[in-house]
Design a protein around this nucleic acid. Structure first.
Lengths: 329, 329
DNA sequence: GTGAATTTTTTACAGATGTATATATTGCCT
DNA sequence: AGGCAATATATACATCTGTAAAAAATTCAC
């Protein structure tokens, strides 16, 4: 058979695609119609897709959001991203992400047979609790994963687990301890108490974890209200910390900074969290970009729940970092 | 399960389509990822296609031509259309269509096991002969389907069948008779001669026919050079003729006009032509629009070979006719 | 709380797609 | 003209899609 000139093969490819995509013919029907083989038709369609002759366009008001979440998901290398649209005129980095988290958690609890869910605490989770629909999950236990702060104004770190439980019609189990022990208190002796041992045992079999994170700045409730006096934010930053998850400070690559504070922290170990089947990180705000990325790097994120402002910043700053590395190369 | 608001279902539909068309995931993979069923995913894709959320675009310089040929094919209700691009600055209604016919016939002879092919005659077929590549088809017989004209300048109606045969390395069988008998000559007696009977018998088993057509005007070689003196073009037009195929004049609907001329015409009957498995009509030029459409209506066209000028006119005039009928309705 | 209606999911199956492999065909070189 | 390499076709099979039907779940009305 005479081999065709490339113009003829592109004309053939276009004609094949016309019949397939526009006329809705099967590949076998097209082969019969054009007097060729099904393999040739299949190859023409593959070629058209790979050369961009055929383009699929998804036209919907939701396309931009779905594209954004897919770009963030790909950028962070995680399983899924849920984006809540934020108000740009009165931006507040808890509201949209709180709503998105509430929706996601409700959906997840309906469709999964979760028994135990660990929770962190923070103002983002508090915002989610405000938005959770009433549900009835009597077989579910909400387990707090770290101690709380002893001071505060409106926000109560001990109310997060109980708040989730109240809305979900679930039970809760609190870690009734300060997040950081006082100087001179031995952590292992403190945690050897049976009530704590029983609680920590729960961490080994959690079905999911609802996490949040914070940077190392006064915007972090923990940094503003919960740090021991002998540890400063500046010292943490000097040690490489860019933020914390569950009271554990991480560097830009997601590595623990190996700080003396770890020996005073009452909460689940990061290595235990990594093994939880479904880790949901809820976080938004420009100041959290680095710690979100670090947590993802560390393997602490299956699902990121965020807002669209933060999602766009993640993408933009990711592109900047790629551009800087490329220029340096 | 709570029925979703329609905004959420469109968001879901878009997300499904994103994974399917952009991420290249299978429907089962998407169902697992979005925690739903394969049926739901399939339905979302169908819905997106039917609502126009998903659009397939075929971007190629050939798209316009393929679209045009599909529109003509659909307009005429025939099997396929081959379009040759014509020069617009020096338009000539034989060259492009002749080239397209040559290409199509060559391809067809390579891929089909044709034994006998009937041919009409005309300047369009002559142009095709000029463009046919040399081939070797010793088992093929080219059979002329009608008598010829006794006069002419450069064009010889008796050279078409032999010209095809020469190029294709085939045999030929000529209908050595005038296309119209003289007055007073009985057609049946004339055709009862064994040599004609043998030739006419071939018409019953033709594998394909290569036809052309002409309007009723001096542009038609037949009308200009072959008509008996007692029949005028005006009289044919008055009888309803808009053109001819194989010397048989048809009205706008493709019906034979039932003219006394039929009793003097030496050529295959139209009813016999209708039964040939593959009928190829080669025709181009603004003056042939009506007879092309009439021939298609009559069932004389499986494949139309034309040029792009004519194709566009077919479409445009078809739209005008539809508009007129709509206004009259 | 129960039963009926409706909707969704699961399962099954037919047809289409995608790809691998064996076979056939074509082209080129000697 | 024959042999070999390259290419195309035919065949086979795995996977995916599309849809129908049975089963399960949910919703609604009483």
């Amino acid at each position: 058979m005479v081999r065709e000139a490339s113009d003829e093969t592109e004309a053939f490819t276009v004609e094949v695609c016309w019949h397939y995509y526009v006329n809705g013919m099967t590949q076998a029907e097209i082969a019969g119609h054009l007097d060729t083989t099904r393999l040739r038709v299949n190859q023409a369609i593959q070629k058209a897709k790979s050369l961009g002759i055929v383009k699929v366009q998804i036209d919907s008001p939701f396309s931009a959001r779905i594209e954004l979440q897919e770009r963030v998901r790909s950028h962070l290398g995680i399983e899924r991203v849920q984006i809540g649209p934020a108000r740009r005129d009165e931006y507040n980095y808890h509201t949209a992400v709180g709503a998105a988290l509430a929706s996601f958690v409700a959906e997840r609890i309906r469709s999964k047979t979760w028994k135990t869910v660990g929770v962190s605490w923070g103002m983002t989770l508090e915002a989610a609790i405000q938005k959770l629909p009433p549900m009835s999950a009597p077989d579910l236990e909400i387990v707090s994963m770290l101690g709380g702060t002893m001071q505060g104004a409106s926000f109560n770190s001990f109310s997060i687990a109980s708040g989730f439980a109240a809305c979900l019609g679930a039970n809760y189990s609190l870690l009734a301890a300060p997040i950081f022990l006082s100087e001179g208190v031995d952590r292992e002796i403190f945690l050897s108490q049976e009530i704590f041992a029983d609680h920590f045992a729960k961490f080994e079999t959690l079905d999911a974890a609802i996490l949040t994170c914070a940077d190392v700045s006064p915007r972090s409730f923990l940094v503003a209200n919960g740090m021991p006096k002998e540890f400063s934010a500046e010292a943490l930053i000097e040690a490489g910390a860019i933020g914390d998850v569950l009271g554990r400070f991480l560097d830009e690559s997601g590595r623990s900074i190996g700080h003396p504070l770890d020996q005073r922290t009452i909460g689940v170990d990061i290595a235990v969290v990594e093994k939880i089947p479904e880790k949901i990180l809820a976080a938004a705000g420009p100041h959290k970009i680095d710690i979100i990325r670090a947590a993802a790097r560390r393997g602490l994120v299956d699902t990121l729940v965020t807002d669209d402002v933060t999602a766009e910043l993640l993408i933009a700053s990711g592109e900047q970092r790629a551009t800087r590395r490329s220029a340096a190369g």
